[in-house]
């Protein structure tokens, strides 16, 4: 990646819904600047004008401050607008408005563990094989039950996630051991992965590319928390299909791991 996608402000946004988050963050920061600068000017003015000096006396009366009341009302109104106008709908949509089953969408299971992201694809049949913690070992990362016919074409990658561009992706997020947090800064998504819970999340990428270590862990999960990253590949539909086919046939899951 020659082009700089990360810098001193928000990184680039390659998701469909990320701009709403960005809009909220930008508006809030403009608001902060306005309020803070307003306060700071008044504050500095007071310090200069009312400094103790010869012949200057403090007044007992406090000012009747109408402007401050207006400022407070402005703050309240602004907060209400952002809360009900932007934050609640955006957050709600990210947590509840999932593309319906059967629609054009990609489903993936992500199983976190110390210290890697295991990505479970359903394979050509589109059905996830059943899993059980009792079957987990160093080869079978998510505890896939191979006796289940739906599991026959499933495959699991470690620390690598391929998704097609312009297609909603629904992830079912869980964890094998401790709490992790699945965070893709350039996608404006974050969700804690909590053992014992399977939490759905969604996003849709708008830009093809290989984003190395774009998946981060945001919750302290142990000594190597800092290395718990994953590579994100946003493919065109053709590339994605080709990759799926390759993984289903020759590209065995173990091989993929060794690459890592």
């Amino acid at each position: 990646m020659e082009e700089s996608i990360y810098g001193w402000w928000l990184p680039i946004d390659i998701s469909v819904n990320g701009h709403k988050v960005d809009l909220l963050i930008d508006m809030l920061h403009w608001f902060m600047v306005v309020i803070f600068v307003g306060w700071a000017i008044f504050f500095t003015y007071c310090l200069v004008r009312f400094r103790a000096r010869e012949g200057h006396k403090a007044s007992y009366e406090t000012i009747k401050a109408k402007p401050s009341k207006y400022a407070e009302i402005f703050v309240v109104i602004f907060e209400v607008v952002l809360l009900f106008g932007l934050s609640i709908p955006t957050f709600g949509a990210s947590r509840t408005d999932f593309p319906a089953e059967g629609d054009d969408r990609v489903e993936i299971h992500v199983v976190a563990e110390q210290f890697q992201w295991n990505v479970h694809y359903p394979g050509a049949d589109g059905k996830f094989g059943s899993t059980s913690p009792k079957l987990v070992d160093s080869e079978n990362l998510v505890g896939l039950d191979h006796s289940d016919p739906a599991a026959a074409d499933d495959f699991v990658t470690a620390g690598i996630m391929h998704i097609p561009v312009d297609t909603p992706v629904v992830i079912r997020l869980t964890s094998k051991d401790v709490i992790h947090s699945f965070f893709i800064p350039i996608m404006r998504v974050k969700q804690d992965a909590i053992p014992g819970m399977a939490i759905p999340m969604q996003f849709e990428a708008t830009r093809v590319g290989e984003y190395s270590k774009a998946i981060a862990c945001a919750q302290l999960c142990g000594n190597n928390h800092f290395t718990m990253s994953g590579d994100l590949f946003v493919d065109t539909q053709e590339d994605y299909d080709a990759w799926l086919a390759e993984m289903a046939s020759g590209g065995d899951e173990e091989e993929e791991e060794e690459e890592e």
């Binding site: 928000l10 709403k20 988050v21 909220l24 963050i25 809030l28 920061h29 608001f31 902060m32 309020i35 803070f36 306060w39 907060e79 952002l82 809360l83 932007l86 934050s87 609640i88 955006t90 957050f91 990210s94 947090s181 965070f183 800064p185 404006r188 998504v189 974050k190 945001a218 919750q219």
Partner: peptide, 22 residues
């Protein structure tokens, strides 16, 4: 004031998506 104001994006869940635990 800075501490309080920067709490706003964290208290609103949508902006917290990006900023939580950072």
């Amino acid at each position: 004031a800075i501490g309080g104001l920067t709490g706003l994006p964290l208290g609103l869940a949508a902006s917290d998506i990006q900023l939580h635990d950072t």
